[in-house]
């Protein structure tokens, strides 16, 4: 999919048809009436991986490459539960996890959620953590 920031942004106005809730509900279908009727729940009010990738493309096309990379990592994390996300975050804090624990988390992110870019990013930390003694020693 190719985007033209000047034509397609903001998505909410220019391309609501591209924006969907995780349940598949379209942007225009999310209305107060549907909320009151119980047809829209909090799980519908979340951003999807697809939308994040679209925003990443917009950022990239506008010269914000690093932001785009972050939004692509975010896209991979949309389906990771909070508790697992926090586990990964905590493992990356200084002296929290062993190298092996970080490896295991990377495997989990990769196999369960297909979070390849996130894992590639985390793996660049491993030699640094080794060199600087930032892994927990057992």
């Amino acid at each position: 999919m190719s985007v033209d920031p000047s034509r397609d942004y903001p998505l909410a106005e220019k391309h609501p048809d591209w924006v969907r809730a995780p349940s598949g509900l379209s942007f225009q279908e999310i209305t107060l009436e549907k909320v009151l009727a119980g047809e829209v729940g909090v799980d519908d009010l979340r951003i999807t991986a697809e939308t994040l990738r679209r925003q990443a493309d917009i950022a990239e096309a506008s010269g914000y490459a690093a932001l785009a990379a972050n939004l692509r990592r975010a896209a991979e994390l949309t389906t990771v539960p909070n508790e697992r996300l926090l586990a990964v975050y905590n493992a990356l804090r200084p002296h929290r996890a062993t190298r092996q624990e970080v490896d295991t988390l990377c495997d989990e992110l990769e196999t369960l959620y297909g979070a390849c870019e996130t894992v590639a990013f985390i793996r660049t930390a491993i030699p640094v953590y080794e060199a600087k003694g930032l892994f927990r020693r057992k």
Binding site: P10, L11, A21, L52, A59, Y64
Partner: peptide
């Protein structure tokens, strides 16, 4: 949901 405010 639209994520427009994630841009710079």
């Amino acid at each position: 949901i639209a994520g427009d405010y994630l841009q710079p």
